[in-house]
Design a protein around this nucleic acid. Structure first.
Length: 271
DNA sequence: CGATTATGATTAA
DNA sequence: TAATCCTAATCGC
């Protein structure tokens, strides 16, 4: 269940374990068996993350496009490789490690043109080295949909998912139903910075935690194990203890604190 | 053992 | 909005 941070993390790991090497490629399912045979014994040049899309660029041509959707995941297996389980769509094995791809709605070989078309419909990747923030922010400024909805629109900005939209809006004290166009440019810039900071931390660490250093002590008191989120999936706000509101928004569950994210500027007309 | 749920997105209606 | 694609873990019975 990956957001952009996971995809970027995977691209790094694949570069480390697999890139520049001749790989043994296999598949347990029929779906990708023919493609796997075609790739077997070839060299992977590099892995590339773009938003929530992962691309494998193989030497002399083929590009594999992978999207993990809601359930897909890559598992790193230690050597020697365990037997292929029936749900493995694609296995990539080098002398360093084995990676198994499970449950992706998308795993396909694409042409250069198809690759370009996928990139063309993505907004700036908030995790890329130098994302075009201006372009994304101006687009948000022209969007009347709720800010929490707009943040998930991959054509506006790519990489953000359901956890980060909830947590970033919380940290910036923004009500999720405010129209994106009603935010000031300052608020939008601050939001961009907040999401980028959170997500970059999510690339560096194996587990997502959105909690700022200043709140960590409180988090530990709330749950000795160390809590990961302010409002996402929680029933009580980490900051003020109010009961967290959860409701469907853009087909997902949104979480927000009614006190820390005041509704003051939300117009009555909504839905 | 079936129902439910989960960090996603496209297509059709 | 609903149906579709995909897997695994959890919960109630």
């Amino acid at each position: 269940m990956p957001e952009g941070n996971v995809i970027h993390r995977l691209a790094r790991a694949h570069d480390r374990d697999l890139a520049g090497r001749r790989l043994a490629v296999s598949a347990a399912q029929k779906r990708f068996a023919k493609e796997a045979r075609a790739l077997d014994g070839r060299v992977l040049d590099r892995a590339e993350a773009r938003g929530k899309h992962l691309f494998h660029h193989w030497r002399h041509g083929p590009i594999v496009h992978i999207h993990l959707g809601m359930f897909g995941d890559f598992y790193r297996r230690e050597l020697p490789a365990p037997p292929l389980r029936p749900t493995v769509r694609l296995r990539l094995a080098s002398r360093a490690a084995v990676w198994d791809l499970i449950g992706p709605p998308t795993c396909e070989i694409v042409t250069e043109d198809e690759y370009a078309a996928i990139l063309a419909r993505l907004g700036p990747d908030i995790l890329s080295a130098r994302p075009d923030a201006r372009r994304a922010l101006e687009r948000l400024k022209r969007t009347d949909a709720p800010i929490a909805h707009a943040l998930l629109d991959q054509r506006i900005v790519s990489g953000i998912g359901n956890i980060y939209r909830a947590e970033a809006l919380f940290l910036d004290g923004l009500h999720p139903l405010r129209p994106a166009s009603s935010l000031t440019m300052d608020e939008l810039e601050k939001l961009w910075t907040t999401v980028r900071r959170m997500m970059r931390r999510g690339v560096a660490r194996p587990r997502i935690s959105t909690i700022e250093p200043a709140d960590r002590i409180r988090a530990r008191r709330a749950e000795p194990d160390g809590r990961s989120f302010y409002v996402y999936g929680e029933s009580l706000c980490l900051r003020c203890g109010s009961s967290v509101r959860s409701f469907p928004l853009s087909g997902r569950t949104m979480y927000a604190c009614p006190v820390c994210q005041p509704a003051a500027s939300v117009p009555r007309a909504r839905k």
